[in-house]
Design a protein around this nucleic acid. Structure first.
Length: 244
DNA sequence: TAGGCCATCTGGTCCT
DNA sequence: AGGACCAGATGGCCTA
């Protein structure tokens, strides 16, 4: 497995006598500076004006020595520009891949939500439930089904109402009545989380839920038109989870 | 036009 | 190290 690009680049940088991020110190020609300018601006590196070639003095006065030094600096500068560009493109490609995975992950999540919607009772106006509505409705629906089973078990001694109402694979592991008091932040104010006479409507109007509107539910409410639910349950069903 | 919902991008953190 | 997960930011679309 090849060494990570960052390592290669840092090794490359070590060959330079200048460890600062002032890239222009490596550059002596207009072309390199022009190429680097946009790169430096996106990578947060400082990119001051191009440094002019050093003045002739001392040992550099030896014929040809100054030219060699200039050439060395020019090569270092170009190598650094290439390495920075490479690093930039590597980060970019990783980001693009991560974005792709994230998009895919969210698509899967949405597909799961669609699957959940498909098994929930639909409303007459066919309003598509929002994400949060779907989750809350599912929570309530499961609770209502569990309550149905409980009542049915009570009313049908000697037989399993569960088996009559649901195929075995549909019998859920139910958490009990909806009282997510430990999570009032995400579920609402918690005011209706305990057994109560007045409950907040979760889905009386799925397209425009009211955050604070309380109501006393009744059999006529579309929320309670769960297929298969006995009518008498409508009069005994306790709190539904409120919107917050 | 404001507000709600959503998709997408992004950087950080956690996990394998 | 790389992927999964998460939350914040942003912009587009729709509706009241």
């Amino acid at each position: 497995m090849p060494a990570p690009l960052e390592t290669c680049i840092s090794d490359l940088d070590c060959s330079s006598s200048n460890s600062s991020s002032d890239l222009s110190s490596f550059l002596t020609d207009e072309e390199d500076c022009a190429r680097l300018q946009p790169l430096a601006s996106t990578s947060g590196l400082s990119m001051p004006a191009r440094r002019s070639a050093p003045a002739l003095s001392g040992a550099s006065n030896v014929p040809g020595a100054q030219d060699e030094e200039q050439e060395r600096r020019r090569r270092r500068g170009r190598a650094r520009v290439r390495s920075e560009a490479l690093l930039h493109s590597l980060r970019r490609s990783r980001r693009v891949k991560a974005n792709d995975r994230e998009r895919n992950r969210m698509h899967n999540l949405n597909a799961a939500l669609d699957a959940l919607r498909s098994v929930l009772p639909s409303f007459p106006d066919d309003t598509k439930l929002t994400k949060i509505e779907t989750l809350r409705f599912a929570y309530n629906y499961i609770w209502a089904l569990a309550e149905t089973l409980r009542l049915a078990d009570q009313g049908l001694p000697g037989s399993s109402a569960r088996e009559r109402l649901l195929p075995p694979q549909c019998v859920p592991c139910l958490p009990g009545p909806p009282s997510p008091a430990s999570d009032t932040e995400s579920w609402g104010s918690g005011a209706a989380a305990s057994p109560c006479a007045t409950v907040a409507s979760p889905l009386s109007n799925p397209s425009s839920p009211s955050a604070s509107e309380d109501f006393t539910y009744g059999p006529g409410d579309p929320l309670f038109s769960f297929p298969g639910l006995p009518k008498d349950l409508l009069h005994t069903t306790p709190c539904f989870i409120p919107y917050h």
